[in-house]
């Protein structure tokens, strides 16, 4: 049994892509190198602006369908799923931390977190919510409107929303682009720490070379 688990760990990847190509139109085509990330391992995808980093992230999250090639997450081929199955799969297994912060503005901080816990399958784990808020320094702001949060608080909430449902993969898009060196290090540490707690693979897509030193596994586009 133990042997089997060990073997499966070796042969299976958390994220694997093959010959991934995406074209917005004829003039804007992106081809991506194959990616293979083992469970619990982290990676950084580096590249200058305009090379299609965000496109790659959306392809990995199943938000875009590749023109060619495949993405599989923990053995599940995204191409083989229907649109709504992808939605559900993404909701359960992937945590997204966006470059721009997206919240539901009519809900307060706590309700935004609850909302993320409610879909695609409801698991309103209050302890998890409070612990996460505590660790991210949001405890005192839970009843605040999201629009009343400071920039830093919004960033932390954005991270919390990417993590709260304990996803297998955390995809973070330029999480450090607006931050100074000190805060940059803090946020990266925070993400790594949370990923460790959830036993998730953390994939950061960035053009910020400050982040480079934090990760062994580097994919340069």
């Amino acid at each position: 049994m133990q042997l089997y688990l060990h073997v499966s760990c070796i042969i299976r990847s958390m994220i694997q892509t093959k010959d991934l190509t995406y074209a917005y139109d004829d003039s804007e085509q992106f081809s991506f190198p194959d990616i293979n990330i083992k469970p619990g391992k982290h990676a950084i995808i580096l590249g200058p602006s305009g090379i299609g980093k965000t496109t790659l992230l959306y392809l990995l999250a199943g938000l875009l369908q590749p023109n060619k090639g495949s993405v599989s997450i923990e053995g599940t081929e995204l191409n083989s799923l229907s649109r709504s199955e992808i939605d559900r799969f993404r909701g359960e297994n992937i945590g997204l931390v966006f470059q721009q912060y997206h919240f539901v503005k009519s809900l307060n901080v706590s309700d935004n977190l609850r909302l993320r816990q409610s879909f695609p399958k409801s698991s309103l784990d209050k302890t998890r919510r409070l612990e996460l808020a505590e660790r991210l320094g949001l405890s005192e702001h839970l009843s605040k409107k999201v629009t009343n949060l400071s920039q830093g608080q919004q960033q932390r909430l954005s991270i919390a929303l990417g993590l709260i449902h304990k996803p297998k993969v955390i995809l973070a898009d330029e999480p450090t682009s607006n931050l100074d060196d000190k805060n940059c290090d803090k946020v990266i540490e925070l993400l790594k720490e949370e990923a460790k707690i959830c036993n998730s693979s953390l994939i950061i897509i960035t053009h910020d070379y400050r982040v480079k030193s934090h990760f062994e596994n580097q994919i340069i586009l």
């Binding site: 938000l63 709504s84 939605d87 909701g91 997206h102 539901v104």
Partner: peptide, 16 residues
């Protein structure tokens, strides 16, 4: 629009 798109990333289907 953005909020609705966000909800889609949370796993809500178009129908939802």
């Amino acid at each position: 629009r953005k909020e609705l798109a966000l909800l889609r990333t949370y796993g809500l289907r178009t129908g939802q």
